[in-house]
Design a protein around this nucleic acid. Structure first.
Lengths: 359, 359
DNA sequence: GTTTAGCACTCGTGGTTTTGAAGTGCTAAA
DNA sequence: TTTAGCACTTCAAAACCACGAGTGCTAAAC
């Protein structure tokens, strides 16, 4: 078997590769006539037909029905992958881009919200969303530093009751005592102020205090700023997008595609919802039906959400998006309970006795 | 307007509610005849027709075309939500379940892997997956405890170079010095052993050493065990599921549904892939075409993935899933580069000079 | 022996037509 | 005010048809 594979005549290989390439390109069965246009193939369609018939006999091609062209069989793809494709070369630019993106670490989404939104999707069987609104004035309340290994520190920050960790790599070895020293300095100088309030004189002062460890100040402060900025940047997360498919209203591929496109460009939606979430005075479940929605595409869809409060402050929102024909009763109740649950878990004593969520 | 709404005759309300309920249930327009079967409605279809015509005039109903039944308009839904639905009551069981799930915090997926998988989906325009295989022997290398507020500790664990944080709520106030004391005890007794190796005598010994703070030992150890168990439990994450829709092979709703169902029940897939990932000897990109796949549903789909190694140890895998008709060249190259990139970011010096990933 | 042109054959696709069922509105009777 | 009956409308599914694409085969050409 192994031998037979390599035994293909050069022309068969070219034809097979041409067929698979073309099929990968446009997804349709490819016929003999089409291949005559290929530059590496100079014989007539009849010859190609013969070759194709043989390739089919060998199991590399198959035809969906007699008057369609050929498509590659699984064995065909296998041969293609094993013997016919040459290596794809990334440009240096692409490689750099890739490394850069990998290096800038993503902030982890707040775990409770993540659990809640997953749960919301599961319980209602609609697509769920979690909103963390933009927060313009966010500050760090407390710092802690651990020395992880010779060159790495773990920076632990308490931001509004939430703990964030971030790794800081140094290019010089870090002595054991430097971590404690640095955390003391951070706690003294950069608590309770926003990222933009950290001034150059402050940094110089810190470097002076740090003495011989001054080289650690700049990378750590950079890490602090980064964390703050992703933290206050807002976030919008969907869960259970595929659940849309359970509903006949989304059987229409075009509508479905529109919806998914909406999920893709989160920024617009986030902008609108941030506004909506933070400025809603009362504490009820919000229901936007069809064209009541702020976003155009959401005709025929309903958005239901409720803000999550922690000690009276809005820290996010959890919601559901689905067809207008939605089980309102169940969804409203679920969202109501969930947001309260989250508030409770966050330690908000008022989580369970605010205004009634429904009606 | 507000008045008119409440002005609906009782019978109209019943009919409207019945129509919307029925429509929510089965998604189809509902006709007069169907409603005669409703228990609260005792008039004939002709009467109902008259009522429906009036409801339509008021704007609560509309008909898609003359010989279909009626469907609720947006105003109809609005009225329904505002006036007609009663509150859905969760059973106590459901509520408990919900609170329990919210309380057990999800471990955040390794940030780099998350970035990588998002990137993989974006670069290839197929659905990407990240696998963290089950790890039977996982231990904590180091503990750190912070007192967050009077009743709450933050437990910080270094597990295989990864930092995990977990909140521990106490039902008694926590003195300032308890945190330091407890972390010393943890570091002494429970480093380098797996969750199942923590014995009752060990816990009792720890409680003895802790003296008056012994009440903190049990909840903290519980938190440790939980963290370890979610950490070694394996994880499977998909990104860019919607990208499937770009490809005509998934225009068929049934096939699409099958595929999405596959994504839902991660456990099976994880089991198989854990095996596959950890026991693959060589360091290349794995390609499974069509029925070569271990999982049934994946006929007509190709799975491509490669293990991510960190200092020689397999810590996960990144892959792509898509139609058999796939741009193999590009995908293989992307996965290859990505896994290497991740290894590099993780600090693996061999990230970039292992066996050639392709061919 | 291999390649090519020609031709009859097959089969799916796209468009049109037909039929049937569902549901309505209206009218007249109860 | 309610109900039965009937004519009308409209969509959906089935049936039908013609077309085009692509093949396999045969016989002639190289």
């Amino acid at each position: 078997m192994e031998d037979r594979k390599k035994d293909l005549s050069e022309r068969k290989k070219i034809i097979l590769k041409a067929i698979i390439d073309a099929h990968i390109e446009n997804g349709e069965p490819v016929g003999s006539k089409f291949l005559t246009g290929h530059k590496q193939i100079s014989c007539s369609s009849a010859t190609i037909r013969n070759e194709m018939a043989e390739l089919e006999e060998m199991g590399f091609l198959e035809q969906p029905h007699t008057s369609a062209g050929r498509i590659p069989s699984e064995a065909g793809y296998r041969f293609y992958v094993d013997w016919l494709i040459d290596r794809y070369n990334f440009t240096q630019g692409e490689i750099d881009e890739l490394r850069r993106t990998l290096n800038q670490k993503q902030s982890e989404l707040d775990a409770v919200m993540q659990t809640a939104v997953t749960l919301a999707a599961k319980l209602t069987n609609y697509t769920a969303l979690a909103i963390k609104p933009r927060q313009p004035r966010i500050t760090v309340g407390r710092y802690e530093l651990l020395r992880l290994d010779e060159m790495t520190l773990v920076l632990i920050m308490v931001i509004g009751g939430i703990v964030k960790t971030k790794y800081v790599h140094s290019n010089r070895p870090i002595p054991n005592e430097a971590a404690a020293c640095l955390s003391a300095v951070l706690n003294k100088y950069v608590t309770g102020i926003t990222a933009s309030e950290i001034t150059l004189p402050m940094m110089m002062e810190m470097e002076r205090v740090m003495g011989e460890y001054e080289y650690l100040v700049s990378p750590v402060i950079k890490a602090v700023c980064e964390t703050i900025s992703v933290f206050d940047g807002g976030d919008l997360r969907f869960e259970g997008i595929n659940r849309l498919l359970s509903y006949p209203e989304f059987y229409d591929m075009d509508r479905l595609r529109d919806m998914l496109a909406l999920f893709e460009k989160k920024d617009d939606l986030l902008e609108v919802l941030s506004e909506e979430t933070t400025h809603t005075p009362d504490d009820r479940v919000q229901v936007y039906i069809g064209r009541e929605n702020i976003v155009k595409v959401m005709d025929n869809s309903t958005l239901i959400f409720k803000a999550v409060r922690d000690h009276g402050k809005t820290v996010g929102a959890i919601g559901i998006i689905g067809p207008t024909r939605m089980n309102y009763r169940r969804v409203i109740a679920t969202i109501d309970h969930l947001t309260r649950g989250v508030s409770e878990v966050l330690g908000d004593p008022n989580g369970n006795d605010g205004a009634d969520g429904n009606e």
